[in-house]
Design a protein around this nucleic acid. Sequence first.
DNA 1: ACAAACTTTCATTTTTTTTTGAAAGTTTAA
DNA 2: TTAAACTTTCAAAAAAAAATGAAAGTTTGT
Lengths: 167, 167
Amino acid sequence: MDFKEAKNKFVQTWGALGSQWGINKTMAQIHALLMVSHEPISMEDIMEELQISRGNASMNLRALMDWGIVYKEYKAGERKEFFTAEKDLDELAVKISRERSKREIKPALKVLKEVSAIESDGTAAEKHFVDQTSKLYDFVLKADNVLDKMTEYKDNWLAKLVVKIMR
Amino acid sequence: MDFKEAKNKFVQTWGALGSQWGINKTMAQIHALLMVSHEPISMEDIMEELQISRGNASMNLRALMDWGIVYKEYKAGERKEFFTAEKDLDELAVKISRERSKREIKPALKVLKEVSAIESDGTAAEKHFVDQTSKLYDFVLKADNVLDKMTEYKDNWLAKLVVKIMR
DNA sequence: ACAAACTTTCATTTTTTTTTGAAAGTTTAA
DNA sequence: TTAAACTTTCAAAAAAAAATGAAAGTTTGT
């Protein structure tokens, strides 16, 4: 396998993995491409490499920047914009965790809190509902806190976690 | 908010959350419904409650059983099948972790290993590719191991993790 | 062996998500 | 201020994913 094949395989795999985790394929592919690129890439080159339209590239780059994991760069003397990905994996994981927590977990917690707060009329069905949603609330809250705490280490958090867990 | 509203809100929210994590909406909704149900439900009732077709219900119940988080039950004297969800949240998290690891993380690791093993010709581009994919391999492997170790506790793993992390 | 009571399958349809590309918008340089 | 070089937007098209429902399959009781 040569470089080109390997790069392609990586980009395709990352794209497929993204889909399975609710991230659109192109977005994941652009991210993959930027991750393994040693220098900033222009939109033109991304379009060319991934065979996608200008609109598609523009929208997904914007989304990646909203996630805080891709940055715009300007090259002296060049008019067009270049893009780079966050390459530090600890930092990447922290940013993804933070965003997913903010966008998805926090709103879910809010709903869990609401629905678990209904006045149960004492029937088994209602009692079980309140009990189960309360437990779920506690569980998700705890998980969210753990994630938050872990990523607070920021530097090398996974390595530190390994030490804590494994001993 | 009364019971019916609360239950509906929970099911809808769980469904939407599922979509964002790459799980189809109906599958997540069925799971939500079974989670908060104090007794096993028949396919007929699931179809009625979620307003979905027989085929849809059948396929998604099968998928949930493949994930090991929904079980078939037989009631004495009844011909039809009833379904329950795994209600222990620790167990649920363990099963989801194991499946996602098996289905998605392990195959991704295999690809990362492959592509990071190319013979670099020494150019900056290739060196960076090998370096970055190697780091990614290490990172994902470590994360997968942590997950595995954590879920090995099986009982109350999240609570135990909280203790470890927070102190 | 039959038929009633169910469940599963899968070709087709529907819905949802993603992509396209051309027009509108922006920035920069002369 | 004009125009070239670029980027963004968004309505329409395409692609992908999910849902339908009827036919095929299975199980159980008589």
